[in-house]
């Protein structure tokens, strides 16, 4: 890889994805670090929600960013980097789930219940909600879970989800409907 002009962190932070991808392809590690800094959070959240364990999520995200680094030369549209990351992360996570035995635990954010100011009765209720949601998410198929997480947690459009998972918009709508019906049933007591 060539040795393009290196830049400072502040300069890198101000650049758009396409520029950072182009510079990364030229071997500029700082540019790629900025892309990692920019998207490691969303990709980790996505992976954690799909695979359900922080260890597997970390491994998946690390693999994704390494794969992305190696394959930057194959990316035809530099501006499409984020969509490519979503697709690669989702596929990586679905592969993890397919290899794993069914009903592995899904970890959920305990942030709300861990708040010190939460009243004890409220903390118990929140904990019960989290347990119910954990069970409900665990019972979704991997594809339903991926569609639901991409839509509800990441705000991706049906079109983007279809492209990410490699299916049709119609299939995405169907999976979302089934996922939501199951989750709604389980979460009904807390509506």
């Amino acid at each position: 890889m060539g040795g393009g002009v290196r830049m400072g962190v502040a300069e890198a932070a101000a650049l758009d994805d396409a520029t950072l991808v182009a510079r990364s392809r030229d071997g500029d590690m700082r540019a790629y670090e900025q892309l990692v800094r920019r998207y490691q959070g969303p990709m980790y959240r996505l992976a954690l929600r799909i695979v359900g364990s922080s260890g597997d999520a970390e491994d998946a995200v690390q693999d994704v960013f390494l794969t992305a680094w190696r394959r930057l030369g194959q990316l035809h549209d530099d501006a499409a980097f984020l969509g490519w990351l979503y697709r690669t992360t989702t596929n990586q996570c679905l592969n993890v789930l397919r290899k794993r035995k069914p009903h592995a635990d899904t970890e959920l954010d305990e942030h709300e219940s861990a708040e010190p100011r939460t009243r004890p009765d409220r903390a118990v209720e929140v904990s019960a909600q989290l347990d119910a949601l954990r069970d409900a998410l665990r019972d979704l198929t991997p594809e339903q879970r991926a569609c639901w997480v991409l839509r509800e947690v990441h705000g991706r459009s049906y079109d983007e989800i279809a492209e990410t998972i490699g299916t049709t918009q119609q299939a995405v709508r169907g999976r979302l409907a089934r996922a939501r019906a199951q989750l709604a049933e389980v979460m009904a007591p807390w509506r």
Partner: peptide, 11 residues
């Protein structure tokens, strides 16, 4: 509710 329960994870 569901979106709130699934937010807040940091890498």
């Amino acid at each position: 509710l569901l979106a709130r329960k699934c937010g807040g994870d940091y890498a």
